[in-house]
């Protein structure tokens, strides 16, 4: 984390994303934290540079505050604190973890498109689909070269 402001902005983004189901704009965060918009905009960019959040290309709109994703994806997550999108299988399960360890990920086998449900109860993976496989093409050293593809 670069500054105290960055951490305050990070926490506001995540808390509002969870509470509202979508990330706050720069203006909303600036207002909530009683900060200047240009300072908060710089904080958004620093957080992206530090790979804490991902902004939609060419904008200051939060695309991902991992594990949360602002736009629909093939990974729908149900939790007692609300329903969310994860950008990948890892992040989708990460949402369940971040929000208490109970929930379900609804997705499809990337090959055959058959539906899969990954259910987590009290931080334990349950259910028939728990025997599936996770695969990533891109090695860890290159994940952030193109995080959307990864």
């Amino acid at each position: 984390m670069t500054t105290d402001l960055d951490n305050d902005v990070r926490l506001h983004i995540y808390r509002e994303f969870v509470a509202q189901g979508e990330p706050p704009t720069v203006a909303e965060t600036a207002s909530a934290l009683a900060q200047r918009e240009d300072e908060v905009a710089h904080a958004y960019r620093r957080l992206e540079h530090a790979r804490v959040i991902v902004l939609a290309p060419g904008t200051l709109s939060v695309w991902m505050a991992n594990p949360l994703c602002a736009y629909p994806s093939p990974f729908r997550v149900e939790t007692p604190r609300g329903d969310f999108w994860g950008v990948c299988a890892w992040d989708a399960l990460g949402i369940v973890s971040m929000l208490g360890g109970d929930g379900a990920v609804h997705t499809h086998c990337a090959d055959c498109n058959e539906s899969m449900t990954l259910r987590v109860e009290a931080r334990e993976l349950r259910g028939a689909d728990a025997g599936g496989v996770f695969h990533v093409v891109v090695p860890p050293t290159q994940w952030w070269d193109n995080i959307a593809f990864t």
Binding site: W90, G131, G132, V133, F134, H135, P139
Partner: peptide, 26 residues
């Protein structure tokens, strides 16, 4: 595409839990 890395969904859950459990902490 070449084969990359794979793991069981149980391993993935453990990874996701370690990675994200504390993401909301100050």
């Amino acid at each position: 595409l070449p084969r990359g890395g794979s793991c069981s969904l149980e391993q993935l859950w453990r990874l996701a839990d370690a990675w994200y459990a504390h993401r909301l902490a100050p």
